[in-house]
Structures are given as C-alpha cells and as structure tokens.
C-alpha cells in the first residue's frame, strides 16, 4: 500500500526533525513532513486538505520559521556553515519531494479523484459549516493583534 510507504517516510522525517541537532535542518525536515502529509492526503482522496497542507503547512510555516531563525542568528552573528551546503541540502529535499509527487500523482488521478471534491468542500465550508466562519475570522484578528502587540517597538514600561 502506497499510503503506508508515504506515512513511513513521514515518520522518518519526523524523527529527523526531532533528533537533528541543527535547527535549520530540522525545520526543513518538518517541511518535508508537511509535504509528505499533503501527499498522504492526496492518496486518501482529500485533495483540498492536501493543497492547503502543502501551501500553508509546508510553505508558509517553513518560510516564517526560516525567516525567524535566520533573522535571529544574523543578529547574533554566529558563524554559519557555507551557504552552498544549505542550497545543496534544500535542493536535494526539493528533488525528493518532487520525485514522490511524480511517482504518486498519476495513481491518484487514476484512482477515484472525485471531480466534485473541491466544489463539495466549498459547499460544506460555505453552507453547512458557515458558523465556523465567525470564530475563524476572530482567531485571525486576535492573532494579528497579538503579533502586533508582541512585536511593537521597545518602550520603557515601569516596574510594576
């Protein structure tokens, strides 16, 4: 079963993410975990969740994390291994992800990809579970306000 293979790979990269000593490498492993999870979703017939996981989980979160790490490490001016090494590693990871995608994509298509899936999910999101929209918007609003509050300029606050 393909799905077990994908999830086995996923667990392997999850182990790497936990045990690798270098933070940047482990964040990249986490991105791989995300990408593999989205492939697993495709295989499990959930293309919408897969697309979301790929773009948001593997993409956005990784970018945020890598930006934070590189920003913080630059400020510390810690000596880093050469940029070429990073480039090579990221390329290798990207190639692996691409390969898996290539290997698995046709089968998924050949299997039962429900053509209405996108429409159905949209239908449920916007009709059946419309009442989730308000809390979702509020969570986003709260997160934006919270981030603004936490990243605001240093002010002198009295000891209190």
């Amino acid at each position: 079963m393909m799905i077990y293979l994908t999830l086995g790979f996923l667990l392997f990269f999850a182990l790497l993410a936990v045990f690798l000593r270098d933070t940047l490498l482990s964040v990249l492993s986490l991105a791989t975990v995300s990408a593999l999870l989205s492939i697993a979703f495709y295989q499990l017939n959930s293309p919408v969740a897969g697309a979301f996981e790929l773009s948001v989980g593997a993409g956005l979160i990784t970018v945020l994390a890598v930006l934070t790490i590189s920003f913080l490490q630059k400020r510390k001016e810690k000596k880093q291994p050469g940029a070429a090494l990073w480039l090579a590693l990221s390329l290798a990871l990207a190639a692996l992800v691409f390969f898996l995608f290539q290997a698995l994509w046709p089968q998924v298509l050949a299997d039962i990809i429900p053509e209405t899936s996108w429409g159905e999910v949209g239908e449920i999101l916007w009709k059946v579970r419309l009442f989730d929209l308000l809390p979702q918007i509020l969570v986003i609003l709260a997160a934006v306000l919270g981030i603004l509050a936490l990243l605001r300029k240093e002010g002198e606050s009295k000891e209190r």
Partner: peptide, 27 residues
C-alpha cells in the same frame, strides 16, 4: 453546541490569553 465550533472558540480564548499574558514583553 458543535464540538468543532467549540474548539475554534477555545483557540480564540487561547490566542488572546497568550498575547495578553506576554503583553509586557519588554520584561
């Protein structure tokens, strides 16, 4: 009364409280 809707409001509660607990982030 829907479990998932409860979860979303629970997350709203959590996110607001994280930001407010750490509000004096200069210390």
């Amino acid at each position: 009364y829907d479990l998932f809707n409860l979860y979303l409001f629970f997350e709203l509660l959590s996110i607001t409280s994280f930001a407010l607990v750490a509000f004096r982030k200069d210390k």
